[in-house]
């Protein structure tokens, strides 16, 4: 999702990261920042070598992305349930200032447990913000376990629809399909768009796939590291 967004969709220019007309993107599930950092480095927002410092004392790249520290990061996230409200503000500002930029907010499925997300959704619909896109990483897992166990979300598409969004569902691992859907925003004129991306958490790494124990894992055994090397080599 991050890959398609940053490579194929966002109108951004690393040489002018504060361009007032740039598209805005917020990784509201800030704990997914490794993917973001890799893409931002790849796009040239900062040198690739910064990646080696991840979480180091003097690094710009922490365990959650920080506004003002990491070029290309539009908002400090890490406390879940903030991104969509900030996105509503950015999108409303675009409307008020007659700017053509779009705002994309990437949310976790566990994250949308937060009531603040639904407050933001109502606000977005109230203002008819069709320049705003909520992308939901629907991997059906959160920290403790399955979203269905922790706090069931279904019927999820109906929820977003009833909150006034135009809803699209897509396989979040299908790059072509994602690109198509993202290029067609707004899905309906006058409505904010919600794109529910069906994904598998940890996809591509067998030990991590759909494994709740892997969430925020930070101590890896040698054999787990080897497995990661093999999986990455396959790409």
């Amino acid at each position: 999702m991050v890959r398609v967004l940053y490579d194929d969709v966002l109108r951004i220019d690393p040489s002018n990261p504060r361009d007032p007309n740039r598209d805005r993107a917020i990784l509201s599930k800030g704990h997914g920042c490794l993917a973001l950092y890799a893409l931002l480095a790849d796009r040239g927002f900062f040198p690739l070598s910064e990646l080696d410092g991840f979480c180091g004392s003097d690094s710009i790249l922490g365990g959650h992305p920080e506004y003002g520290m990491v070029p290309g990061v539009e908002a400090s996230t890490g406390a879940l349930g903030h991104g969509l409200s900030i996105g509503v503000g950015l999108a409303l500002a675009a409307r008020m200032r007659e700017r053509s930029y779009r705002t994309f907010v990437l949310l976790g499925d566990g994250e949308i447990n937060e009531g603040s997300v639904w407050e933001a959704a109502m606000g977005a619909a109230k203002h008819g913000l069709d320049n705003l896109v909520a992308m939901i990483d629907y991997n059906k897992l959160q920290s403790y376990g399955p979203t269905d166990y922790v706090l069931p979300l279904e019927p999820l598409a109906d929820k977003w629809r009833s909150f006034g969004f135009a809803v699209q569902e897509v396989n979040g691992h299908d790059v072509g399909a994602l690109r198509t859907v993202l290029k067609q925003v707004p899905a309906v004129a006058g409505k904010p768009t919600a794109i529910i991306c069906h994904t598998v958490k940890g996809k591509g790494l067998p030990a991590a796939e759909s494994n709740a124990d892997w969430h925020h894992k930070n101590k890896l055994t040698d054999s787990e590291l080897d497995a990661i090397r093999v999986a990455v080599g396959d790409f």
């Binding site: 879940l80 566990g110 937060e114 959160q142 403790y144 706090l151």
Partner: peptide, 27 residues
């Protein structure tokens, strides 16, 4: 939404008194 397995033993012994309620702190 604590880490997987938090108080697993208690969740087995007292499932009704071990509640996981989602990322909804205010609630």
């Amino acid at each position: 939404d604590p880490g997987a397995g938090t108080l697993r033993a208690m969740s087995k012994e007292f499932p009704k008194r071990h509640l996981i309620e989602g990322i909804s702190e205010a609630h």
